[in-house]
């Protein structure tokens, strides 16, 4: 009979928790969440806060001046233009490779499939010296191109070539799962309705893949614009000609010009994020259009 009176604890305990999270019968949120926040705060947020704060410490004019130097501008332009060009080529090449890997059976398919990830796993410095040698005057490919008057190593073209390898897996791995899920019945339906191979591809398959292609493109672009290791060996690093953005940061840091280095870093990050956000927005719209 005592029990029938609701215990004070039960009444008071109702919803004592903060409203920002839904209550759960599972324990351990507090600890895991606190660790996550502290870790992400110290490892990601704190250093990025420095990147955002420090370019302005002398005066905003300094920031603008630091960016607008011809040498810096040329380096940023090279990084972003080469990344853009490489991402475009990679989108096309990645689509073909993903298609071949998912649709056809041929000897060594699994090995090739695994090899696509090599640029993810191969240290950039290793790729860098390999590319510099390969496309150098005495390299396997460089010696073939030299008689044609094409110079790749130590020119802006070298930057572009290096970024081709860097971005490729992003596109392939973005497209593959979508291709996997794409119902072959769609293609078959298009064919029974009289579409030829090209029409089927252009009007049925490509629209379905476009959000994934856009994702792959933007990731390849962002990664390429910031790439350092695989580029500096082949680029030649001539100021104003084949010097890339990240190298300007390194040079300024070596001169203890923290604000200047931070200014270039912040600019590069801002451009990359703007492209990522824009493509993300476009991708969401594309996906919504394609939703059944």
């Amino acid at each position: 009979m005592v029990a029938l009176a609701p215990s004070l604890g039960t009444i008071l305990d109702v919803r004592r928790r903060a409203a920002w999270r839904e209550p759960s019968a599972l324990p351990g949120f507090r600890g895991a969440f606190a660790f996550t926040l502290v870790y992400a705060g110290l490892i990601i947020l704190l250093p990025l806060a420095a990147l955002v704060a420090r370019p302005w410490e002398h005066s905003p004019a300094d920031l603008v001046h630091g960016i607008l130097q011809p040498r810096t501008l040329a380096a940023l332009r090279l990084s972003f233009v080469a990344a853009l060009a490489a991402a475009v080529v990679n989108t096309a090449a990645g689509l073909v490779i993903a298609w071949v890997l998912n649709r056809y059976d041929f000897p060594g398919r699994r090995v090739v499939d695994a090899l696509v990830d090599l640029p993810f796993a191969l240290p950039t410095a290793v790729a860098g010296i390999a590319l510099a040698t390969l496309y150098g005057p005495n390299g396997w490919i460089g010696s073939l191109l030299a008689p044609l008057g094409v110079k790749v190593a130590f020119t802006p073209l070298g930057v572009f070539v290096a970024l081709l390898a860097v971005g490729l897996p992003f596109v392939v791995r973005a497209v593959q799962p979508v291709l996997e899920d794409l119902d072959t019945a769609l293609e078959e339906a298009a064919q029974t309705l009289g579409a030829n191979t090209l029409q089927t591809f252009a009007r049925v398959i490509l629209p379905a893949l476009s959000p994934a292609l856009l994702t792959g493109f933007s990731l390849a672009f962002a990664r390429g614009a910031g790439e350092y290791g695989s580029v500096i060996f082949i680029a030649g690093n001539m100021p104003g000609v084949s010097e890339i953005g990240p190298l300007v940061i390194v040079t300024r840091l070596e001169a203890y010009d923290y604000a200047g280095a931070a200014a270039v870093g912040l600019t590069m990050l801002a451009i990359s994020l703007a492209v990522l956000i824009a493509t993300n927005w476009a991708q969401v719209r594309l996906a919504r259009r394609g939703a059944p």
Binding site: A50, T124, G226, Y228, G265, L276
Partner: peptide, 11 residues
């Protein structure tokens, strides 16, 4: 993932 490795050092 979208930050240049050099910037990850710089910060």
């Amino acid at each position: 993932l979208s930050i240049s490795p050099v910037i990850s050092g710089l910060v």
